[in-house]
Simulated scan of single mutants.
Amino acid sequence: MKHKYTVLILLITAVGMIFITRAWLAVHTAAPRTFEIFDILTVVSAVILLLKGGRSLRWGDWAAALVLGAVVTAGMLFATLFSPYPFLGFIKSNAEQAVIRGTFTTLAALGGLVVMRRGGPVQFHAAAGNWRAISKGILLGLVIGLPLAVLNVFALKFTQGHPIQWQSPGAALLDALQPGIGEEVIYRFALWGLLWLMLRKSLPEKAHGISGLLAMLIHNYSHFDDLFIQSPLTALGLGAVLALVWGLPPLLLARRRGLESAIGFHWIQDAARFLAGY
């Protein structure tokens, strides 16, 4: 009993060391972005899990994961408003990014589906073709996300100091699929599931919630690479506020309504900011 929190403490320590080490390296030399580190760790872990437990997957699981990857790949090829950082500093073109992002999305989705088949914390209704659950989940994500998306636009207008500059609605809607699908699949589905697997034996009654919060914080604080170097305390405080306002809703939506609902919430956030020119 006294050792039940050992795995959790080790996980928190490891995550903290990744953030600290990355920030230290970035001060002294070129360093991968925090998102890249956790993307790679999550996808590699998902592949290992897939190799060990891939037989539990059904044809619908494979189809859903491949479709997600194809959507991300195709969308990145035609992206105009979404311009991610060069992956690992040298993968820059839309075509190169499309291959990386699409492959990572598919592999992370497959790993997350292996966890789901083991009773994991997040359901992916598309794998079962449950269109009613899919549509209701996405709609709820959009309804809850829309007012926060508007708030986000005005917050960006205030913090970035330049007025709204309307962009192509079609481009905004298309490009928002990149973070909306990619980040939710990797962090809200695969990483959450992997952390749950690590904690479910030592904390069986709390693993769902704790692993979800940890995955949310990793995703949230990965946005603050530069601020962690300039002002670590500001990064911690601002990250906590943003996690409360924009991190908890997709976490709860994913847990209660499925991955599609979290994707809908995330998508409307980025669609609104791309449309407004941020």
Rank of each mutant, 00 (worst) to 15 (best):
K2W: 08
K4E: 11
L10Q: 04
I12L: 15
I12K: 01
I18C: 04
F19G: 10
L25M: 12
A26G: 13
I40Y: 11
V43E: 02
S45E: 02
L49Q: 05
L51R: 08
K52W: 06
S56L: 15
W59T: 02
A64S: 15
A70I: 11
M76R: 05
L77E: 13
L81W: 09
P86A: 08
Q97A: 07
A98G: 03
T103K: 01
T103N: 01
T105F: 11
A109V: 06
R117H: 15
R117P: 00
R118F: 09
V122Y: 08
F124W: 09
A133I: 07
I138T: 06
L139E: 08
G141C: 05
I144N: 10
L146V: 14
P147V: 00
A149Q: 00
V150R: 04
F154C: 06
A155R: 11
K157C: 03
Q160N: 12
H162I: 10
G170H: 05
A172E: 00
D175N: 07
P179R: 12
P179I: 11
G180H: 07
R188Q: 07
A190D: 04
L203Q: 12
K206G: 05
G209L: 09
I218C: 02
H219W: 10
D225N: 14
F228Y: 11
L253A: 02
R256P: 00
S261I: 06
S261M: 00
W267M: 12
A271L: 04
R273V: 13
A276M: 03
G277C: 09
